[in-house]
Design a binder for these strands. Structure first.
Lengths: 215, 215
DNA sequence: ATAGAAGTTATGCAATTGCATAGTTCGCGA
DNA sequence: TCGCGAACTATGCAATTGCATAACTTCTAT
């Protein structure tokens, strides 16, 4: 009966559990993601999860929030990163969206899991709406900056139309890339993305390589 | 104890159960899609499902196959429909992919559910691979025909690159459209899709309206 | 030091779930 | 018409699951 344990010191154990939840969902699917399975992965007792999260639903919602956070990271890095000319910034965004951690098929599994439940779970719908609005907002800004630098100030409708189109291209390429990561070359995916954006905006973008290493 | 029932006559009761499964998944999510829930929706006893399907897993797999079938329908309609000039054919494909039954958010829920399980369930991976290969194959053909009609015969790499890009645009727009069906206008989505394809191929496409009604 | 608060484990329970089994009813061919 | 196979229902069971509870351990404030 001796329950010897070490109390989680600095880092937050909650984060551990959320990470274990994501691992579980990505590995065995949402159906097999039980409280016990998550606890086993996190290396804690199942009771502890209940101690930190009000319910399983709250745990899953937290996992969704974390997923949105992960997917937004490349975008935020570009927005908050060192100030660059608009064209380089947009190109950097495209590259970041299609490579690095974002190109991980695991992320697609997670994303699809939550998206599939948006209609069934009202909490998810809210999380999604907020996250996606911010995403499109940012894209619109990136695009508008490029157009303005070209001397072609877009109307509100034009801004929106371009943002929808470019987001669609990037999302679609991300999807395809993750779905067949073994057949499709990542750099090909990136160059297609850049060329599409160039074609849609009628501009020329600088050549940017992943990880910020420029040629 | 009286178990009065009508035997399913002409139409296949299996199809009923698959449809009920899809309804269930779309409405309440894969987690709440139990054999009993499906049986209730189909208006049959839960034992009957087991009678027609070897296991729940087989039922779900059948539901996935049906989903792929539904999503491929517009594509097949264009491919097998009345022979049209290549440009009209491609435009018709874009329109069909972004409107009609394909634009239903319910379809996105179903698709996302299965996609999210591809990694966890080997059967799904197989179903996906086959279905998607056929899809890309067909797109490549449509595109190649257009390019050939323009007198610009594309190389194998060029064909593939264009197919990936155009598929990505269509998939991405479909995604966005389904995800925010209430905010985004369907016809705007279609016109963006057509303009994107035009930009990517460097061609001009005829104006096509949904449901095959040309203007 | 020491008490109290919070982290953590172990265990149990009622509800659910997939599947099995036995029995009932229907339709069709001989 | 009659019998037999298949469609169908009803019921039960073992395993699982989310959650509750009780007990124990560690940390921190005083």
């Amino acid at each position: 009966m001796t329950a010897s344990f070490r109390r989680a010191p600095d880092f937050d154990r909650k984060a551990d559990m959320i990470e274990a939840t994501l691992d579980c969902i990505a590995d065995v699917g949402i159906q097999a993601t039980t409280v016990r399975a998550v606890a086993a992965r996190a290396g804690v007792s199942n009771g502890l999860i209940r101690h930190h999260f009000e319910s399983k639903d709250k745990l899953i919602t937290a996992a969704y929030r974390r997923t949105i956070e992960m997917m937004s990271e490349p975008m935020l890095a570009v927005m908050k990163g060192p100030s660059q000319p608009p064209h380089a910034r947009l190109a950097g965004f495209v590259v970041a969206s299609l490579s690095g951690p974002n190109a991980d098929p695991r992320l697609l599994s997670l994303w699809a899991t939550f998206i599939s439940q948006i209609h069934a779970n009202p909490h998810f719908a809210q999380e999604h709406r907020v996250g996606y609005a911010a995403y499109r907002e940012a894209t619109e800004e990136l695009i508008a900056d490029v157009m303005t630098a070209e001397g072609r100030i877009p109307s509100v409708q034009e801004r929106r139309r371009l943002a929808i189109a470019i987001n669609a291209v990037i999302d679609g390429l991300w999807l395809e890339g993750c779905l067949s990561a073994d057949e499709i070359d990542e750099s090909l995916q990136i160059s297609i993305g850049l060329r599409c954006v160039e074609a849609l905006l009628g501009v020329e973008l600088p050549d940017v390589r992943p990880e910020g290493k420029e040629s």
